[in-house]
Design a binder for these strands. Sequence first.
DNA 1: ACATAAGCCTACTTGATCTATAGACATAGG
DNA 2: CCTATGTCTATAGATCAAGTAGGCTTATGT
Lengths: 153, 153
Amino acid sequence: MISKKTKYALKALGYLAEHSTGDPILISELAKEENIPRKFLEAILVSLRKGGVLKSKIGKGGGYMLALPAAQITIGRVVGILEGGFALVECLNDNVKVACEECGDPACCGIRLVMSEVKSAIDSVLESTTLADMVERSESARQHKSKIMDYSI
Amino acid sequence: MISKKTKYALKALGYLAEHSTGDPILISELAKEENIPRKFLEAILVSLRKGGVLKSKIGKGGGYMLALPAAQITIGRVVGILEGGFALVECLNDNVKVACEECGDPACCGIRLVMSEVKSAIDSVLESTTLADMVERSESARQHKSKIMDYSI
DNA sequence: ACATAAGCCTACTTGATCTATAGACATAGG
DNA sequence: CCTATGTCTATAGATCAAGTAGGCTTATGT
């Protein structure tokens, strides 16, 4: 289950991707428009900045902007920043080479072997989907729906 | 990330699948052999029994047995029993038709659309892998390794 | 230079959930 | 009836997610 943090992050990034005009967007605007607790959002945005997907401008007239085109930001990257990797068992997280306490031999641990496959499956989706895809898909779902509404009137 | 509960469950089930002779196996044996806290394991086994993958015999000479052949128990089923469904967002859990508080319109929520794809990817692995597969894969990894050891001696 | 509008940082609170443990109870076998 | 075994209920402790508070730093415009 992804955390609220990650959900908020994706919502905020979606908003930035949709409303970006080159000028920075205020935290308070993001918080209000996407219904995210202001202070909580601050922390999330800092993580995203440190993770390289956002850049900020301090001081009057400041705010947040995407650091990259939305089409170059994968959902996997965002999830990775906020969930700290996205493996299903510790011993599959990037950078972690130690075995879980339980499985004596990581190479032979059945659980690890299976979960490694699951992780690949997840990653292949998450790494191939970008913020731009997400926004576009949401938009087209919305249009599709309003079209149906039209017919029914 | 899967919980320890789920890991313990898979380990216990793996042991049962490997050592099943028709006679029930004691909780204490499972706990000892797989290094699982005895009382914690008890609770896990009860869940698995209620979930239909184990059956128990009470009283002297009692213990636990698989309720089905290992080849008919999917890892997805086990994970589902212990994690209570395995969606990445609430609104994708089976039986749950309500929207997450955040996404006003579930049909148009980009996050939901993406996570729904991820869930499909996870499920396709988890539902197509059985306990028997897991045990067999672990076993063959172990043999492969010992073979390499042989050569190196 | 100063006032103001931003983001930045550190610390804390609260509540939930995961992990683990204890002890009394129920059931079957001999 | 005694003993071995699983079952149930309750609870304690640790960890973590979610949210809150307040002060600090940096930039802009006058």
